[in-house]
Computed example of a mutant assay.
Amino acid sequence: MTNYIEFLIDRYPDVLSAAWEHLTISGIAVLLGCLVAVPLGAYLSGNRPGWMRSAAFGAANLFQTIPSLALLAVLIPLLGIGLKPAIFALFLYSLLPILRNTYAGFQSVDAGILEAARGMGYSAAQRLLRIQLPLAFPYIISGIRVTTVYVISWTTLATLIGAGGLGQLIFSGLGVNRQELILTGAAAAILLALLADFLLGAIERRIGRTA
């Protein structure tokens, strides 16, 4: 234990730097997923052709089923190595849960409420922003919460293509047989996932109380 504490004191700048890289990669991927999946889910919840919904969910499901290493290998010839392919791969993985929850949230809005708002003269944009989005938001934040935890864990593989993050500590430890590196990288990734889950869970509960 004493040796491990000394290791942390000696290497904490590297650990913090790796944790920040990890959080940055995860955060950008989830943000991009939200920017695509939330508007798409809201759009699909309207009176759209069935083939359109099937195509969107089918594509998102397909990305989810591709193994992480296989997807990274496919992206390297297209995007090179480093941050770009890592963020793009994680963005693809983030789409399905956010899209599914957003769609379910908008579908859960009572049609009678929308009809009453239409009768009061609300435009389509006003109904979307003032009624549908607030009522669907608990579903949306729940999807973002699940996605964020998953993406933080998947980001450990980003180091395989030179993107950095906490996976660099883990794989470096495996390469030189340093258990403290493996333990530190894994523990830090778990803590980041738990912290993100706690914060987003608090937001979800607060929204649930005020909804």
Rank of each mutant, 00 (worst) to 15 (best):
A124W: 06
A59S: 14
L99W: 03
L71C: 01
L72S: 01
R127L: 05
K84D: 03
T102C: 11
S123N: 09
Y103D: 11
P77D: 02
Q132C: 03
W51G: 11
A56Y: 06
N47V: 11
A56G: 08
L114D: 06
A60G: 11
T65I: 13
F106E: 03
F63G: 05
R53W: 04
L83I: 14
I152L: 15
G50K: 13
W154S: 13
A104C: 02
S153H: 07
Y93V: 04
L114S: 13
I144M: 14
I152W: 04
A55E: 03
V74Y: 10
R130K: 13
A104G: 01
I81R: 12
L99V: 04
G82C: 09
L69T: 11
P77M: 04
I76T: 15
S94D: 10
L71T: 00
A86E: 04
A60N: 08
Q64M: 13
W51P: 12
I113H: 12
P134H: 10
L99Y: 02
Q64A: 15
L133F: 15
M120W: 07
L133G: 02
R130M: 12
L71Y: 00
I98N: 06
T155E: 08
I87A: 05
S94L: 06
R118M: 10
P134S: 09
S94M: 10
R127C: 13
G50D: 09
G82H: 10
N47C: 03
F63R: 08
R130W: 10
I98F: 05
S123T: 15
A86I: 04
A136S: 04
V146S: 14
P49C: 08
L129A: 13
S68Q: 10
I141D: 01
P97N: 12
S108H: 05
Y122L: 14
P138E: 01
L79P: 00
N47R: 14
T102S: 14
L92W: 04
P134D: 08
S54A: 15
Q126P: 02
L95I: 15
K84W: 11
Y103H: 14
L133E: 01
L69M: 15
